[in-house]
Design a protein around this nucleic acid. Structure first.
Lengths: 144, 144
DNA sequence: CTCAGGATGTCAACTGGTTGACAGCCTGAG
DNA sequence: CTCAGGCTGTCAACCAGTTGACATCCTGAG
């Protein structure tokens, strides 16, 4: 197997997402993407469908289709925007907020625990590198 | 937006894959996942459906469904395994091999060009970090 | 006032994945 | 020899995205 950094990165995020998925599933019956939905909402509340889609990196239609499910689970509410009858504003219920907060905390804890005791790993440095790479890719992609 | 390293990583691979996708599309009308299929085959030829699925990190059914398309495009061939009538062996056609090689080269070139002149970025170091993280996640995930 | 055009959310059709069931082939314990 | 059980690939049904078309609402130039 070739060891392009592209592949390593893909493997890493796949593994991390799978791990998060597993933690969330066995403790709250939650999907990672469901959690992400709640977490994004937690620090952007309220968000309309369009901005939610941008934050999740997904189409508006996808968000639109997921809302009823999250609503049924009691995590998310929709409220009308008095200034625009077409706009749908999403907010967390108390339950959703509690869940997002709790699950977020657990995931953070799991993450730090995952890498602690690894003297050879400097997470902050790596994070900085990742951000630099991201910046490079985005700037290149946009200008062509 | 919270800046968990998880999110940064997800953004980075999304952006890199999108970039690769764009390069491949405009030059060969190829999808990134199609290219990956060919690239995996290139350095593992021949592979049966099951092993291909493992290499791609995807189900056997998914591979099974993609083969006819790649065959129709003339990139992939199926040959029978004389030792097992059920097994389907995948190989690249000459065209497929040429394409995998050429596209792989271009992508590598694009990648290095993308990050060259960035004195603040040490790709090898970052790659090593990524591999270490991957190892940590996998070992944790497996033993629980 | 008004209406052309931009936002906004939803729908239908499609795509590419997943799972579970299954049929065909192969192997080894007996 | 033989047959129970493990591989192997495929199928049907489903799931969560995407795109493009659309109806509705809002806004601003005239």
């Amino acid at each position: 197997m070739s060891d392009r950094i592209t592949y390593s990165l893909n493997h890493l995020v796949t593994a991390m997402n799978a791990y998060a998925d597993q933690v969330l599933a066995e403790r709250w019956g939650l999907t990672f993407s469901q959690f992400t939905f709640l977490a994004v909402l937690e620090d952007g509340q309220p968000l309309d469908i369009t901005r939610m889609a941008e934050c999740l990196g997904v189409s508006k239609a996808a968000v639109s289709k997921r809302v009823p499910g999250l609503q049924a689970k009691g995590y998310v509410q929709t409220v009308a925007d008095p200034a625009n009858a077409r706009r749908v504003l999403l907010t967390l219920t108390d339950e959703g907020l509690r869940l997002a907060h709790e699950a977020g905390g657990l995931l953070d804890a799991e993450l730090t625990q995952l890498f602690e005791g690894r003297a050879d790993l400097d997470l902050d440095r790596t994070h900085a590198d990742v951000l630099l790479m991201l910046e490079a890719v985005l700037s290149k992609g946009n200008r062509s």
